[in-house]
C-alpha cells in the first residue's frame, strides 16, 4: 500500500516536472515573441515619428508658398469670393468669356500649333498600336 502510494507520488512528481518544463519552455518562446513584437512596435513608432517630422518638414509653409507661387497661385483676393446663389451666373459668364477668347485667339493667331502637334502625336501612337 505504502509502496503503491510512493510510486504514484513519484510518477506524479516526474509528470509535473515535465509539465512544468514544457510550460516554462512555451512561456520563454512566448516571451521572446512578445519582446520581438515590442521591439518592432518601438521601431515602427520611431519610424512613424521620423515620417511625421519629414512630412511636416515638407509641408512647412515657407516651402509650400514658394511652390504655390511658381504655379501662379496667391492669397485669395476679396473679389474671388462668390456667394452660392451667384455661382451659376459666374460659371456661365466665365465659360462664355473663355469661349469667346478662344475664338478670338483662333482668328488672330490662326491654328493652335501645340494642339496640332498633340493630335499628330496621338495619331502616331495609334498607328504604332
Amino acid at each position: 500500500m505504502l509502496r503503491l502510494l510512493s510510486v504514484a507520488a513519484m510518477a506524479l512528481t516526474i509528470a509535473s516536472a515535465f509539465g512544468l518544463y514544457q510550460t516554462k519552455y512555451d512561456t520563454r518562446q512566448l516571451e521572446a515573441k512578445l519582446q520581438a513584437g515590442e521591439r518592432s512596435i518601438e521601431k515602427m513608432e520611431g519610424d512613424i515619428a521620423v515620417l511625421r517630422a519629414e512630412k511636416a518638414y515638407l509641408a512647412r509653409p515657407e516651402r509650400i508658398e514658394a511652390l504655390a507661387k511658381r504655379q501662379g497661385l496667391g492669397p485669395i483676393a476679396g473679389h474671388q469670393y462668390v456667394l452660392p446663389g451667384e455661382l451659376q451666373a459666374k460659371v456661365q459668364a466665365s465659360q462664355h468669356e473663355a469661349a469667346s477668347q478662344k475664338a478670338e485667339k483662333a482668328s488672330v493667331r490662326g491654328p493652335d500649333h501645340i494642339e496640332a502637334l498633340l493630335r499628330q502625336q496621338d495619331s502616331l501612337a495609334g498607328e504604332t498600336r
Binding site: G46, A49, V50, R52, A53, K55, A56, A59
Partner: peptide, 9 residues
C-alpha cells in the same frame, strides 16, 4: 494641428 516640434530617435 500641424506639427511644429517632435522627438525622433
Amino acid at each position: 494641428g500641424r506639427l511644429v516640434a517632435t522627438d525622433v530617435a
